[in-house]
Simulated assay, not measured.
Amino acid sequence: MAMQRTILEKAEPVAEGALSLLLRGADGLLAPWEPGAHIDLALPNWLTRQYSLCGDPADRDTYRVAVRHDRLSRGGSEYIHLFLGEGRTLDVSVPRNNFPLLPAPEYLFLAGGIGITPIMPMLTAAVEAGASATLVYMGRSLDSMPFVDELRAAHGSRVRVHATDRHGLPDFAAEAAELGPGTLVYCCGPGPMLDAAEAAFPARRLHIERFRPAAKEFAPDTAFDVHCARSERTVRVGAEDSMLDALNHAGLRIPSGCREGVCGTCEIALVDGEPEHRDDIGAAPGRMYTCVSRALSPSLTVDL
């Protein structure tokens, strides 16, 4: 995976428990990106975490992300909030986009808390393209919601801020009833909010990005073989193993990030066999995500 060297130029609070990080390219221009994209951030504590880009795609000098301090942190957000200092050199990946903004005459954007990060550049791009766009931005309280003032200053009445400690939960059914015929809905935020959006809005109109995988049920895991076409090797994936771990332990190094099927870092090409896709991205034909997905056939052949 291609990496870029950056310097943490600025880390500043943007809400209660949320930091904005401004990363400046250390070796010239950074790779381009489009709204909805995210980067892998390699931390000095050997963890890699994914964060949505929330700055200006036209700015090739810097990337901006925002990080919520998760009370159940697995070491990423805690390190960033407590130990990561300005001036530190950090490696970041080339941006990837599993949440692209499709053309439409009208958009309804729904964001909850730190889920505002991929939505911010989408709203700006939609307005610049001449589309009608509305943002419903939800959070526990105004103090907990990043970038509220920035959004209001840039977009005025297009932004409807909904602090649930004052106004309760928003009425997604009412929002759905008012959708125009060509309106697309983009939604990012906590799991219960996304579940409510899926229940209220037509699936063909709704585009969702999850920070955590949705609950799913599958048949019990069974062992299978992975034939690696280029290296001419066969790796056994046990019922207790992930495909990602089995391949890595066999010396076939595959980069990974979330290990939950939401970031796309561990994508590989599938040559033959019937995969069982367990990711939340929606693997394209001939692709699969090795951290969570398995096989429905006795074996798979992959391009490794």
Results as ranks from 00 to 15, higher is better:
G36H: 12
D70P: 04
A18L: 09
S73Y: 10
R71E: 15
T62Q: 11
G139M: 11
I39N: 00
F83D: 15
R88P: 02
P95W: 05
S73C: 04
I39D: 00
P100G: 12
S132Y: 05
L29D: 13
I39A: 03
E34W: 05
D40I: 07
A133Q: 06
D70V: 10
L135V: 08
L82P: 06
A126I: 00
P32G: 09
R49C: 04
A15F: 01
L84D: 04
C54Y: 09
L21C: 02
S20Q: 14
R49Y: 00
R64V: 10
R71C: 03
R71V: 13
L142P: 01
E34T: 14
P95D: 03
A15M: 02
R88H: 13
P121T: 08
V127Y: 05
R74L: 06
E86L: 06
P100A: 10
L142V: 12
D61E: 15
H38N: 00
A31Q: 13
Y137C: 08
Y51S: 05
A66E: 01
D56H: 07
F109R: 06
I80N: 01
L102R: 15
F83E: 15
G76R: 08
G36E: 12
T124V: 06
Q50G: 01
D27N: 14
L21P: 02
Y107L: 08
G112S: 08
A126C: 00
L142N: 12
A111E: 03
A31N: 04
I116W: 07
L123R: 03
A104T: 00
A131G: 02
L101Y: 00
H69P: 01
P44M: 01
A125E: 12
G139A: 10
N97I: 11
N98E: 10
T48P: 01
G113D: 07
C54V: 00
W46E: 15
D143P: 08
S77A: 03
E78H: 14
A126S: 11
E128N: 10
S20V: 05
P57A: 09
G75L: 04
G130M: 04
G75H: 07
R24D: 04
R74D: 02
L22C: 14
R64S: 09
E78S: 15
R60H: 13
E34L: 15
F83Y: 14
T134C: 02
L22P: 06
E86T: 11
I114D: 02
P121Y: 11
S77K: 02
A26N: 01
A58P: 06
G139E: 11
A125L: 00
Y63M: 10
E150W: 05
H38C: 01
E106V: 08
S20H: 09
P57E: 06
N45F: 00
M120L: 12
E86A: 13
T89R: 15
A58L: 13
P146E: 05
A58G: 14
T134H: 11
L43K: 10
Y137T: 07
L102W: 10
W46T: 15
N97C: 09
C54L: 08
D143M: 06
